[in-house]
């Protein structure tokens, strides 16, 4: 049996958490979030987390769990509009917040995982995002410098994984998960289905196992934020 496999989410975080740590958590809205690892992080009691995640969950679910218990000191996100407790803590000055344009956030994480300390982008030029950042012209156009991001711990969610840590994602549940897996000093993945080596076609691996140190199979609730349907025509 591979040394990467853990029996449950709590065991999978054993020895990895410490106060003041930086945690990347995958997902877009509630889609593709590592539900069980977030709950395990809450139960670990770790404090003063800097959380890097596109969104902040909703009240009482996803990263909203860690906001309720005041375990997050700072959020780095692109959009947090679905969370009232977040807004309350932020407006009360209890929570630090760094907004990143979504593409800049994704690229900062990709760069961090790829060993690139900084890069230039035209996103945010002339806005508050550009304030205090180095500007540089390339071919007559102005760009701002953004830095790569890494984490002490990345928690990600995949559809299928094998015991070597190879991962495959389903549909739009991929989102930030692959880059975060690359950018973690340690990455723990939770998967819907865990299989033995050979169970996944190597042609269709999204994240190679080198980026995943621990893996756990766990059942997810997969809450839907905006259930939207169309009428069946007669």
């Amino acid at each position: 049996m591979s040394k990467k496999v853990y029996n449950n989410a709590h065991d999978a975080l054993e020895g990895l958490t410490f106060d003041g740590m930086t945690v990347m958590s995958g997902g877009f809205g509630l889609c593709g979030i590592p539900e069980n690892l977030i709950a395990a992080l809450r139960d670990s009691g770790v404090k003063d987390i800097t959380a890097i995640s596109n969104n902040a969950g909703v009240d009482g679910f996803g990263l909203g769990l860690l906001l309720e218990t005041r375990q997050i000191k700072k959020m780095m996100s692109s959009y947090v509009g679905e969370n009232k407790e977040f807004e309350r803590q932020y407006l009360a000055g209890e929570l630090e917040l760094e907004f990143n344009p979504q593409g800049t956030l994704a690229e900062r994480i990709r760069a961090g995982g790829a060993g690139i300390p900084g890069f230039y982008t035209k996103t945010g030029v002339g806005t508050v995002i550009a304030e205090g950042k180095p500007h540089q012209e390339f071919d007559g156009e102005t760009y701002i410098m953004e830095t790569g991001l890494t984490s002490d711990l990345s928690i990600v969610k995949a559809w299928r994984g094998d015991t070597e840590g190879n991962l495959i994602f389903k549909a739009t549940a991929k989102n930030f998960n692959p880059m975060m897996a690359m950018a973690g000093k340690v990455t723990v993945a939770e998967v819907d289905e865990l299989c033995a080596p050979g169970g996944l076609d190597p042609n269709f691996i999204h994240v190679p196992g080198i980026f995943v140190q621990r893996i756990v199979e766990a059942k997810c609730e997969k809450r839907i934020e905006q259930l939207t349907t169309r009428e069946r025509s007669a």
């Binding site: 809205g29 509630l30 739009t172 549940a173 997969k222 939207t228 349907t229």
Partner: peptide
């Protein structure tokens, strides 16, 4: 694609507005 028919929603398949598609 369009919104799903009732019962065909997939929580892993959403748009940027977090709607099922």
């Amino acid at each position: 694609g369009p919104f799903p028919y009732p019962g065909d929603e997939d929580p892993d398949l959403i748009n940027a507005g977090k709607q099922t598609i």
